Simulated scan of single mutants.
Amino acid sequence: MTTPDQLLQILQNEIEKNSYGEHPIELYEPIRYIMSLGGKRFRPLMTLMATSVYTDDWQKALKPAQAVEVFHNFTLMHDDIMDCAPLRRGKPTVHEKWNANIAILSGDVMLIRAYDLLLDIESDRLRRVLQRFNQTAAEVCEGQQLDMNFETRWDVTEAEYLTMIRLKTSVLLGFALEMGGIIGGADAQATTLLYEAGVNMGIGFQLKDDLLDVYGDPAKFGKQVGGDIIANKKTFLLIEALERAEGKAKADLDQWLASETFDKVEKVAAVRGIYDSLGIRDFTEQKISEYFATGFDCLERLEAEPSRKKHLMGFVHQLVEREA
Protein backbone atom coordinates (compact mmCIF):
# COMPACT_ATOMS: atom_id res chain seq x y z
CA MET A 1 0.00 0.00 0.00
CA THR A 2 1.06 3.58 -0.63
CA THR A 3 2.52 5.15 2.53
CA PRO A 4 1.33 8.48 4.01
CA ASP A 5 4.63 10.13 3.01
CA GLN A 6 4.19 8.97 -0.58
CA LEU A 7 0.57 10.11 -0.64
CA LEU A 8 1.57 13.50 0.74
CA GLN A 9 4.20 14.00 -1.97
CA ILE A 10 1.75 13.03 -4.70
CA LEU A 11 -0.87 15.34 -3.20
CA GLN A 12 1.58 18.22 -2.97
CA ASN A 13 2.61 17.75 -6.59
CA GLU A 14 -1.04 17.84 -7.68
CA ILE A 15 -1.73 20.98 -5.65
CA GLU A 16 1.25 22.71 -7.24
CA LYS A 17 -0.09 21.90 -10.73
CA ASN A 18 -3.40 23.69 -10.19
CA SER A 19 -3.61 27.13 -11.80
CA TYR A 20 -7.19 27.99 -10.67
CA GLY A 21 -7.35 30.55 -13.50
CA GLU A 22 -5.16 33.04 -15.36
CA HIS A 23 -6.83 36.38 -16.09
CA PRO A 24 -7.05 38.84 -14.49
CA ILE A 25 -3.80 38.03 -12.71
CA GLU A 26 -4.84 40.01 -9.62
CA LEU A 27 -7.68 37.55 -9.03
CA TYR A 28 -5.74 34.30 -9.37
CA GLU A 29 -2.23 35.12 -8.16
CA PRO A 30 -3.40 35.45 -4.51
CA ILE A 31 -4.88 31.94 -4.72
CA ARG A 32 -1.61 30.48 -5.98
CA TYR A 33 0.18 32.47 -3.27
CA ILE A 34 -1.83 31.20 -0.29
CA MET A 35 -1.80 27.63 -1.62
CA SER A 36 2.01 27.84 -1.93
CA LEU A 37 2.46 28.75 1.74
CA GLY A 38 2.25 25.08 2.65
CA GLY A 39 0.63 23.79 5.79
CA LYS A 40 0.41 20.24 7.06
CA ARG A 41 -2.11 19.15 4.36
CA PHE A 42 -3.39 16.53 6.81
CA ARG A 43 -7.07 17.01 5.89
CA PRO A 44 -6.72 16.02 2.20
CA LEU A 45 -4.18 13.38 3.17
CA MET A 46 -6.72 11.78 5.50
CA THR A 47 -9.26 11.79 2.66
CA LEU A 48 -6.84 9.74 0.55
CA MET A 49 -6.07 7.36 3.39
CA ALA A 50 -9.76 6.86 4.19
CA THR A 51 -10.39 6.03 0.53
CA SER A 52 -7.47 3.57 0.51
CA VAL A 53 -9.04 1.69 3.44
CA TYR A 54 -11.79 0.55 1.03
CA THR A 55 -10.17 0.49 -2.41
CA ASP A 56 -6.76 0.31 -4.07
CA ASP A 57 -7.96 2.97 -6.50
CA TRP A 58 -7.28 5.85 -4.11
CA GLN A 59 -6.29 8.08 -7.05
CA LYS A 60 -9.97 8.81 -7.69
CA ALA A 61 -9.96 10.79 -4.44
CA LEU A 62 -7.06 13.05 -5.49
CA LYS A 63 -9.11 15.95 -6.82
CA PRO A 64 -11.84 15.78 -4.14
CA ALA A 65 -9.09 15.71 -1.49
CA GLN A 66 -7.69 18.90 -2.99
CA ALA A 67 -11.17 20.43 -2.74
CA VAL A 68 -10.94 20.06 1.03
CA GLU A 69 -7.59 21.87 1.09
CA VAL A 70 -8.73 24.64 -1.26
CA PHE A 71 -11.85 25.19 0.85
CA HIS A 72 -9.77 25.22 4.05
CA ASN A 73 -7.46 27.88 2.62
CA PHE A 74 -10.44 29.89 1.39
CA THR A 75 -11.68 30.07 4.99
CA LEU A 76 -8.21 31.09 6.16
CA MET A 77 -8.05 33.89 3.59
CA HIS A 78 -11.36 35.32 4.77
CA ASP A 79 -10.63 34.69 8.46
CA ASP A 80 -7.40 36.66 8.13
CA ILE A 81 -9.36 39.66 6.88
CA MET A 82 -11.81 39.45 9.79
CA ASP A 83 -8.98 39.03 12.29
CA CYS A 84 -6.85 41.78 10.70
CA ALA A 85 -4.04 39.21 10.76
CA PRO A 86 -0.72 40.43 9.27
CA LEU A 87 0.89 37.02 8.85
CA ARG A 88 -0.12 33.54 7.71
CA ARG A 89 2.49 30.77 8.12
CA GLY A 90 5.15 33.43 8.61
CA LYS A 91 4.34 35.29 5.37
CA PRO A 92 2.15 38.36 4.71
CA THR A 93 -1.54 37.54 4.51
CA VAL A 94 -3.30 38.06 1.19
CA HIS A 95 -5.11 41.22 2.31
CA GLU A 96 -1.77 42.67 3.46
CA LYS A 97 0.14 41.71 0.32
CA TRP A 98 -2.68 42.92 -1.96
CA ASN A 99 -5.77 44.40 -0.29
CA ALA A 100 -8.97 43.29 1.45
CA ASN A 101 -11.16 43.53 -1.65
CA ILE A 102 -8.85 41.29 -3.65
CA ALA A 103 -8.67 38.82 -0.75
CA ILE A 104 -12.47 38.67 -0.56
CA LEU A 105 -12.90 38.09 -4.28
CA SER A 106 -10.03 35.62 -4.60
CA GLY A 107 -11.47 33.71 -1.66
CA ASP A 108 -14.84 33.57 -3.42
CA VAL A 109 -13.18 32.01 -6.47
CA MET A 110 -11.44 29.46 -4.25
CA LEU A 111 -14.83 28.28 -3.00
CA ILE A 112 -15.99 27.91 -6.60
CA ARG A 113 -12.84 25.98 -7.54
CA ALA A 114 -13.43 23.65 -4.59
CA TYR A 115 -16.75 22.69 -6.18
CA ASP A 116 -14.98 22.15 -9.51
CA LEU A 117 -12.62 19.68 -7.86
CA LEU A 118 -15.51 17.81 -6.25
CA LEU A 119 -17.05 17.23 -9.69
CA ASP A 120 -14.44 14.53 -10.28
CA ILE A 121 -16.44 12.23 -7.96
CA GLU A 122 -18.42 9.42 -9.59
CA SER A 123 -21.97 10.53 -10.37
CA ASP A 124 -23.68 7.99 -8.12
CA ARG A 125 -21.83 9.40 -5.09
CA LEU A 126 -21.56 13.06 -6.05
CA ARG A 127 -24.95 14.22 -4.73
CA ARG A 128 -24.30 12.74 -1.31
CA VAL A 129 -20.87 14.35 -1.10
CA LEU A 130 -22.21 17.74 -2.19
CA GLN A 131 -24.95 17.61 0.42
CA ARG A 132 -22.43 16.82 3.14
CA PHE A 133 -19.97 19.43 1.86
CA ASN A 134 -22.65 22.15 1.84
CA GLN A 135 -23.66 21.27 5.39
CA THR A 136 -20.05 21.33 6.50
CA ALA A 137 -19.32 24.64 4.80
CA ALA A 138 -22.31 26.28 6.46
CA GLU A 139 -21.25 24.92 9.85
CA VAL A 140 -17.72 26.30 9.42
CA CYS A 141 -19.26 29.74 8.85
CA GLU A 142 -21.47 29.29 11.91
CA GLY A 143 -18.40 28.47 13.98
CA GLN A 144 -16.56 31.54 12.74
CA GLN A 145 -19.53 33.75 13.65
CA LEU A 146 -19.67 32.23 17.14
CA ASP A 147 -15.93 32.86 17.53
CA MET A 148 -16.45 36.52 16.63
CA ASN A 149 -19.40 36.74 19.01
CA PHE A 150 -17.20 35.45 21.83
CA GLU A 151 -14.75 38.34 21.37
CA THR A 152 -17.11 40.69 23.22
CA ARG A 153 -18.29 38.21 25.86
CA TRP A 154 -16.69 37.16 29.14
CA ASP A 155 -19.34 34.61 30.08
CA VAL A 156 -18.56 32.01 27.40
CA THR A 157 -19.09 28.52 28.83
CA GLU A 158 -17.08 25.37 28.22
CA ALA A 159 -20.00 23.86 26.31
CA GLU A 160 -20.31 26.93 24.08
CA TYR A 161 -16.59 26.91 23.35
CA LEU A 162 -16.59 23.22 22.46
CA THR A 163 -19.54 23.79 20.13
CA MET A 164 -17.70 26.65 18.46
CA ILE A 165 -14.49 24.71 17.79
CA ARG A 166 -16.49 21.70 16.64
CA LEU A 167 -18.11 23.86 13.98
CA LYS A 168 -15.21 26.12 13.08
CA THR A 169 -12.45 23.51 12.81
CA SER A 170 -13.56 19.95 13.52
CA VAL A 171 -16.44 19.27 11.12
CA LEU A 172 -14.14 19.83 8.12
CA LEU A 173 -11.79 17.10 9.33
CA GLY A 174 -14.81 14.87 9.87
CA PHE A 175 -16.00 15.59 6.33
CA ALA A 176 -12.52 14.90 4.90
CA LEU A 177 -12.56 11.39 6.35
CA GLU A 178 -16.23 10.79 5.57
CA MET A 179 -15.80 11.81 1.93
CA GLY A 180 -12.82 9.50 1.59
CA GLY A 181 -15.00 6.65 2.79
CA ILE A 182 -17.84 7.56 0.43
CA ILE A 183 -15.48 7.71 -2.57
CA GLY A 184 -13.96 4.38 -1.55
CA GLY A 185 -17.35 2.68 -1.37
CA ALA A 186 -17.74 2.39 2.41
CA ASP A 187 -21.23 1.76 3.77
CA ALA A 188 -23.26 4.28 5.77
CA GLN A 189 -22.16 2.93 9.15
CA ALA A 190 -18.49 3.20 8.20
CA THR A 191 -18.78 6.74 6.84
CA THR A 192 -20.56 7.81 10.03
CA LEU A 193 -17.71 6.34 12.09
CA LEU A 194 -15.16 8.12 9.90
CA TYR A 195 -16.98 11.41 10.36
CA GLU A 196 -17.24 11.02 14.14
CA ALA A 197 -13.58 10.04 14.31
CA GLY A 198 -12.60 13.21 12.46
CA VAL A 199 -14.82 15.49 14.53
CA ASN A 200 -13.55 14.14 17.84
CA MET A 201 -9.94 14.22 16.68
CA GLY A 202 -10.46 17.77 15.44
CA ILE A 203 -11.71 18.95 18.82
CA GLY A 204 -8.76 17.21 20.47
CA PHE A 205 -6.34 18.93 18.08
CA GLN A 206 -7.79 22.37 18.80
CA LEU A 207 -7.67 21.82 22.56
CA LYS A 208 -4.07 20.68 22.15
CA ASP A 209 -3.29 23.87 20.23
CA ASP A 210 -4.78 25.86 23.12
CA LEU A 211 -2.62 23.90 25.56
CA LEU A 212 0.59 24.15 23.53
CA ASP A 213 0.17 27.92 23.22
CA VAL A 214 0.60 28.10 27.00
CA TYR A 215 2.80 25.13 27.80
CA GLY A 216 4.54 24.25 24.53
CA ASP A 217 8.25 24.21 23.86
CA PRO A 218 9.05 27.41 21.90
CA ALA A 219 11.67 25.53 19.86
CA LYS A 220 9.03 23.04 18.68
CA PHE A 221 5.81 25.06 18.71
CA GLY A 222 6.77 27.24 15.75
CA LYS A 223 5.28 30.45 17.11
CA GLN A 224 5.34 32.56 20.23
CA VAL A 225 4.30 30.60 23.29
CA GLY A 226 1.80 32.61 25.31
CA GLY A 227 0.38 34.51 22.37
CA ASP A 228 -3.17 33.65 23.38
CA ILE A 229 -2.55 34.94 26.92
CA ILE A 230 -1.06 38.19 25.61
CA ALA A 231 -4.09 38.72 23.35
CA ASN A 232 -6.67 37.70 26.00
CA LYS A 233 -7.91 35.12 23.51
CA LYS A 234 -10.77 33.05 24.85
CA THR A 235 -9.29 29.58 24.73
CA PHE A 236 -10.45 26.49 26.59
CA LEU A 237 -7.88 27.20 29.31
CA LEU A 238 -8.98 30.80 29.90
CA ILE A 239 -12.67 29.88 29.91
CA GLU A 240 -12.04 27.18 32.51
CA ALA A 241 -9.95 29.56 34.58
CA LEU A 242 -12.68 32.21 34.53
CA GLU A 243 -15.21 29.62 35.71
CA ARG A 244 -12.99 28.25 38.49
CA ALA A 245 -11.11 31.28 39.83
CA GLU A 246 -12.08 32.68 43.21
CA GLY A 247 -10.57 35.11 45.69
CA LYS A 248 -7.00 36.19 44.93
CA ALA A 249 -6.76 34.03 41.80
CA LYS A 250 -9.86 35.72 40.37
CA ALA A 251 -8.64 39.19 41.30
CA ASP A 252 -5.22 38.57 39.75
CA LEU A 253 -6.68 37.08 36.58
CA ASP A 254 -9.17 39.94 36.19
CA GLN A 255 -6.35 42.45 36.68
CA TRP A 256 -4.21 40.91 33.96
CA LEU A 257 -7.17 40.69 31.57
CA ALA A 258 -8.00 44.37 32.16
CA SER A 259 -4.43 45.67 31.86
CA GLU A 260 -3.75 47.58 28.66
CA THR A 261 -0.03 48.07 29.26
CA PHE A 262 2.08 45.22 30.62
CA ASP A 263 5.28 43.27 30.23
CA LYS A 264 4.43 40.34 27.94
CA VAL A 265 6.77 37.86 29.61
CA GLU A 266 5.47 38.80 33.03
CA LYS A 267 1.83 38.45 31.98
CA VAL A 268 2.37 35.04 30.39
CA ALA A 269 4.18 33.75 33.48
CA ALA A 270 1.55 35.16 35.84
CA VAL A 271 -1.47 33.79 33.98
CA ARG A 272 0.25 30.44 33.48
CA GLY A 273 0.80 30.38 37.26
CA ILE A 274 -2.91 31.00 37.81
CA TYR A 275 -3.74 28.15 35.45
CA ASP A 276 -1.35 25.90 37.39
CA SER A 277 -2.98 26.79 40.72
CA LEU A 278 -6.43 25.95 39.33
CA GLY A 279 -5.42 22.62 37.78
CA ILE A 280 -6.27 23.85 34.30
CA ARG A 281 -3.43 22.03 32.54
CA ASP A 282 -4.35 18.60 33.93
CA PHE A 283 -8.04 19.15 33.20
CA THR A 284 -7.31 20.20 29.61
CA GLU A 285 -5.02 17.22 29.05
CA GLN A 286 -7.78 14.95 30.37
CA LYS A 287 -10.28 16.46 27.91
CA ILE A 288 -7.83 16.08 25.03
CA SER A 289 -7.30 12.42 25.91
CA GLU A 290 -11.05 11.82 26.04
CA TYR A 291 -11.64 13.26 22.57
CA PHE A 292 -8.68 11.41 21.05
CA ALA A 293 -9.81 8.15 22.69
CA THR A 294 -13.30 8.56 21.21
CA GLY A 295 -11.80 9.24 17.78
CA PHE A 296 -9.53 6.20 17.95
CA ASP A 297 -12.45 4.05 19.10
CA CYS A 298 -14.42 5.07 16.00
CA LEU A 299 -11.50 4.08 13.76
CA GLU A 300 -11.03 0.78 15.60
CA ARG A 301 -14.71 -0.05 15.03
CA LEU A 302 -14.39 0.28 11.25
CA GLU A 303 -15.04 -3.11 9.68
CA ALA A 304 -11.98 -3.32 7.46
CA GLU A 305 -8.83 -5.40 7.30
CA PRO A 306 -6.31 -4.18 9.92
CA SER A 307 -3.65 -4.06 7.20
CA ARG A 308 -5.79 -1.59 5.26
CA LYS A 309 -6.31 0.62 8.31
CA LYS A 310 -2.72 0.63 9.55
CA HIS A 311 -1.51 3.71 7.63
CA LEU A 312 -4.52 5.78 8.67
CA MET A 313 -4.24 4.69 12.30
CA GLY A 314 -0.50 5.28 12.35
CA PHE A 315 -0.82 8.72 10.81
CA VAL A 316 -3.48 9.78 13.31
CA HIS A 317 -1.25 8.56 16.16
CA GLN A 318 1.55 10.77 14.83
CA LEU A 319 -0.78 13.78 14.75
CA VAL A 320 -1.94 13.12 18.30
CA GLU A 321 1.62 12.92 19.62
CA ARG A 322 2.86 16.08 17.89
CA GLU A 323 4.31 18.91 19.94
CA ALA A 324 3.95 21.65 17.34
Rank of each mutant, 00 (worst) to 15 (best):
T51C: 15
I104R: 11
T93P: 01
L111T: 03
K60G: 03
V70F: 01
G90M: 02
Y54Q: 12
I104W: 09
G107K: 07
W58M: 08
K91L: 14
L111N: 01
A61L: 10
V53S: 13
S52M: 06
L105I: 15
N99I: 00
G90Q: 03
L62T: 08
K63A: 14
P86I: 01
W58I: 12
L105A: 09
A85M: 06
A67D: 07
I104D: 03
G107L: 10
T75P: 05
P86L: 03
Q66R: 01
L105H: 06
T93I: 04
V109F: 14
D57Y: 02
D83M: 11
A65R: 09
L117P: 06
N101G: 11
N73T: 13
T93G: 05
V94N: 06
D120T: 06
H78S: 01
T51M: 10
K63D: 11
T55C: 12
K91P: 00
E96V: 15
V94W: 07
H78R: 03
V109M: 12
H72L: 05
A67I: 14
A85E: 13
L87Q: 14
N101I: 10
M77P: 11
N99M: 01
P64E: 10
G90P: 10
C84Y: 15
H95S: 00
W98A: 02
K60D: 08
G90Y: 10
C84L: 13
T93M: 11
W98P: 01
D56Q: 14
D79A: 08
V109K: 12
S52R: 08
